[in-house]
């Protein structure tokens, strides 16, 4: 078995606001191996993006703070690194592609300037060399007419093209881990498919690991090897993608699966998970999903469950499966 490239252990990231402590990331653990793709799925506010920002050390502080946990990257704890050391990792070892390509590029600089500065921030190369590499990268991600395009400003590109530029920029120093935070959410469906295809192609060519943050199970099915499901800051289920779709365990995961619209003529109403995610400042006692859960038991309102192993490489945070845990232990 390959050693993990990134291993996150019991990460807790909290925001200390005037109206209370927000546990944005509340006990999240997972690992990613080189060349693999991990999907992190969940609703808005479930802590997906904050998990990613924690890895890069970009939690706005104050009010945010990583309270406890470990983030091991190539065996070293990123939380123990200085700001300077982190700066050398960001954009080089771990790079990130953001949700909205329309606003993620600086509007007042040319693509050339933005690409060249990224390369030159990490490598001692001449402007010309950095420029040449930028041309290659843009070509690689499928930008036509690169020599002319590189001199242009972001507003002269379409959304899909801008996301390609973002990806090219993220790839510019051959990162071993790419974090993509909802990279296709803001794009048209046809463009989404192209961008996902591009991620796969790049991964094959560069053998990097990808963390794909999304709320779209379609994207997960398309590109991910493993999936982490998050709810209200907590990891609630983690397993292989196929296992999750065939044999998902957590009631929240099941709810998500059912709420995917299906093309069947007699289906009248869309299945939904009743209720809303809880206010992270006033989390319910016990299981955070209990108020919305179809299978809720009395115990659920009192006890918060731990991650339980239900089978090889499949963990769930739900009291329904606690028995199995005991069985496994025995």
């Amino acid at each position: 078995m390959k050693a993990a490239l990134l291993e996150v252990r019991h990460l807790h990231t909290h925001f200390f606001t005037k109206s209370g402590t927000v546990k944005a990331v509340d006990d999240v653990s997972f690992s990613v191996k080189p060349g693999e793709t991990l999907g992190i799925v969940g609703e808005s506010g479930s802590g997906k993006s904050m998990t990613a920002m924690s890895i890069l050390g970009l939690i706005p502080s104050p009010p945010g703070k990583i309270v406890s946990g470990e983030i091991l990257f190539k065996g070293e704890d990123l939380l123990k690194k200085s700001e300077k050391e982190m700066r050398q990792i960001r954009g080089k070892e771990i790079s990130m592609v953001f949700q909205d390509p329309m606003t993620s590029l600086n509007p007042v600089f040319t693509i050339e300037k933005q690409m060249v500065e990224t390369i030159r921030a990490h490598e001692k190369v001449s402007k010309k060399q950095a420029f040449e590499r930028s041309l290659d990268l843009l070509h690689l991600v499928g930008i036509p007419d690169v020599k002319k395009r590189i001199k242009m400003y972001p507003h002269e590109f379409s959304g899909g093209m801008r996301q390609r530029v973002m990806i090219a920029m993220a790839l510019s120093c051959n990162p071993s881990l790419l974090i993509a935070d909802e990279p296709t959410t803001a794009l048209d469906v046809t463009i989404q498919a192209q961008i996902l295809e591009l991620f796969k192609k790049m991964q094959d060519e560069l053998n990097m690991a990808i963390i794909m943050i999304t709320h779209d199970l379609g994207v997960v099915a398309e590109v991910c090897d493993e999936v982490l499901v998050m709810y209200a800051g907590k990891a609630v289920e983690m397993t292989y993608t196929k296992q999750l779709f065939d044999n998902g365990k957590h009631p929240y995961t099941l709810g998500l699966m059912q709420s995917i619209p299906k093309i069947t003529p007699n289906k009248e109403k869309l299945e939904v998970i009743e209720g809303l995610p809880p206010d992270l400042r006033r989390l319910p006692k016990g299981c955070h999903f209990a108020p919305r859960c179809k299978y809720v038991m009395e115990r659920c309102l009192i006890e918060g469950p731990d991650m339980t192993k239900v089978s090889e490489h499949h963990t769930v945070r739900c009291l329904l499966y606690e028995k199995t845990k005991k069985a496994v232990k025995q």
């Binding site: 700066r87 960001r90 990490h122």
Partner: peptide, 17 residues
């Protein structure tokens, strides 16, 4: 507060720049 400033941080640029 803009996204492109977050991008700049994520690229590993110096704070001064």
């Amino acid at each position: 507060r803009q996204d492109y400033i977050r991008t700049a941080y994520a690229k590993g640029l110096k704070r001064f720049i």
